[in-house]
Amino acid sequence: MVFDLWKQIKAKKFAPIYLLYGVESFLINETRQHLINHLLNEEEMDFNLFSYDLEETPIDVALEDAETFPFMGERKLIFLQNPAFLTSEKTKEKVEHNLSKLEAYIKEPSPFTVLVFIAPYEKLDERKKITKELKRNAAILEAKKLNEVELKSWIKERAALNHVEIEEEAVELILSLAGTNLFMLTSEIDKLALYSGAGNGINVHMVENLVSRSLEQNIFTLIDKIVNRKIEEALRIYYDLLKQNEEPIKILSIITGQFRLIYQVKELARRGYGQQQIAGHLKVHPFRIKLAAGQANVFGDKELTHIMKSLAETDYQMKTGGMNKELLIEMFLFRLHHK
């Protein structure tokens, strides 16, 4: 996992070439920052830190730089952004790249340069010779979206980096409250670790009191309260959102999106799709599919159809009528509870 790569970087065990690819930008950005922090000191950064956009600059220019001795310090650090020649994606390349020169460099990299390819693409073209050569010789980070098991492992590892342990129930609760965004999760874990103090533990009570809820997670919790017929708690969440100056039309949009997801999950499950297949088909994180599937079991087909129609009517009234927008959502919640 990524933590193993970071540990090597922290121990100053640098590879001559790195390949960071995938769509999880947080993992790529963190790895990039780790390399900068541990490979160069502040005095060296102005002279030995370089970045090239390969959509604008030929690879030859970057390789010439890589083969030039560093002005100060022991190593250069060079980032190569957007190497589209590693993918099969169609791009409007403005420059031509001498890939044979790159292949030669990969086989014999400069001993005083760390070359980092940053490829923000979901997949690389494994059929291409240059891709094969790079994957054979580089230290690789596949920055993919983490599944539920990997997210739980991430939370535990992040806590361990802060020298604290985290209870299993607390891990589950953080995912439920903060969602699956790694930027958000990292921020919350670091905050909890700071509150807990090194050598101590993070428990459920701390998570309940300290973890910030995103708007989407608040609305998911609101819907969960409705599902379980807890109208008073649902309304309390709604009123809190209004106090935070959240726009009713935005709240309604996210409620609609969540019920649409519940409807889609229910329908696809009936057709025999597994949760992983549904996640891939809808391009939604598997953890969200798991939660929506649990909510889908509570609603019948006719009830879900009725809810979707009611949401459409509420949306129409909110955009065209003169009725109070806050009251429209409140009325929808009461109707849903009654139903």
Score class of each variant (00 low, 15 high):
residue 130 I to E: 04
residue 142 E to R: 13
residue 170 A to V: 06
residue 203 N to Y: 05
residue 130 I to G: 05
residue 140 I to P: 13
residue 258 Q to N: 09
residue 160 A to I: 13
residue 149 V to H: 08
residue 178 A to V: 08
residue 196 S to V: 03
residue 230 K to A: 13
residue 164 V to D: 04
residue 167 E to F: 15
residue 132 K to H: 07
residue 226 I to D: 05
residue 214 S to N: 09
residue 172 E to V: 00
residue 166 I to E: 12
residue 160 A to S: 11
residue 228 N to I: 14
residue 184 M to W: 02
residue 200 N to G: 07
residue 212 S to G: 07
residue 185 L to H: 13
residue 260 R to K: 10
residue 138 A to E: 15
residue 152 K to M: 02
residue 158 R to Y: 06
residue 166 I to K: 13
residue 204 V to K: 11
residue 242 L to R: 05
residue 213 R to P: 01
residue 149 V to T: 12
residue 138 A to F: 09
residue 230 K to L: 11
residue 129 K to N: 08
residue 248 P to S: 01
residue 155 I to V: 12
residue 254 I to Q: 03
residue 219 I to Y: 04
residue 145 K to F: 14
residue 161 L to P: 05
residue 236 R to G: 11
residue 229 R to Y: 04
residue 181 N to D: 12
residue 250 K to H: 04
residue 169 E to M: 12
residue 239 Y to G: 05
residue 164 V to P: 10
residue 185 L to R: 15
residue 144 K to Y: 03
residue 135 K to L: 09
residue 233 E to S: 08
residue 225 K to N: 13
residue 170 A to M: 11
residue 135 K to Q: 11
residue 256 T to F: 04
residue 169 E to C: 01
residue 221 T to F: 02
residue 191 K to F: 03
residue 144 K to M: 02
residue 162 N to S: 08
residue 207 V to N: 00
residue 246 E to G: 03
residue 261 L to M: 08
residue 186 T to N: 11
residue 225 K to Q: 15
residue 214 S to M: 02
residue 232 E to S: 11
residue 165 E to R: 11
residue 242 L to S: 00
residue 256 T to P: 07
residue 148 E to L: 06
residue 254 I to A: 11
residue 172 E to C: 04
residue 131 T to R: 12
residue 187 S to M: 08
residue 195 Y to G: 02
residue 236 R to H: 06
residue 139 A to W: 03
residue 260 R to S: 10
residue 166 I to V: 14
residue 133 E to W: 09
residue 226 I to R: 12
residue 217 Q to C: 06
residue 261 L to N: 00
residue 226 I to W: 08
residue 144 K to P: 00
residue 231 I to D: 02
residue 237 I to V: 10
residue 177 L to T: 13
residue 182 L to D: 01
residue 183 F to N: 03
residue 180 T to H: 15
residue 161 L to G: 00
residue 154 W to E: 10
residue 206 M to G: 01
residue 146 L to H: 09
residue 233 E to H: 10
residue 226 I to T: 10
residue 257 G to W: 03
residue 197 G to Q: 08
residue 130 I to W: 02
residue 189 I to Q: 09
residue 222 L to A: 03
residue 209 N to C: 04
residue 162 N to V: 00
residue 223 I to E: 00
residue 241 L to C: 10
residue 202 I to R: 13
residue 152 K to N: 14
residue 213 R to Y: 09
residue 209 N to I: 04
residue 214 S to E: 05
residue 181 N to H: 12
residue 260 R to Y: 11
residue 192 L to S: 08
residue 167 E to Y: 06
residue 182 L to G: 04
residue 129 K to D: 00
residue 149 V to I: 11
residue 209 N to G: 01
residue 237 I to C: 13
residue 241 L to H: 07
residue 227 V to C: 11
residue 181 N to F: 06
residue 131 T to F: 05
residue 187 S to P: 11
residue 178 A to C: 12
residue 262 I to N: 02
residue 195 Y to M: 01
residue 248 P to G: 01
residue 146 L to N: 02
residue 140 I to L: 12
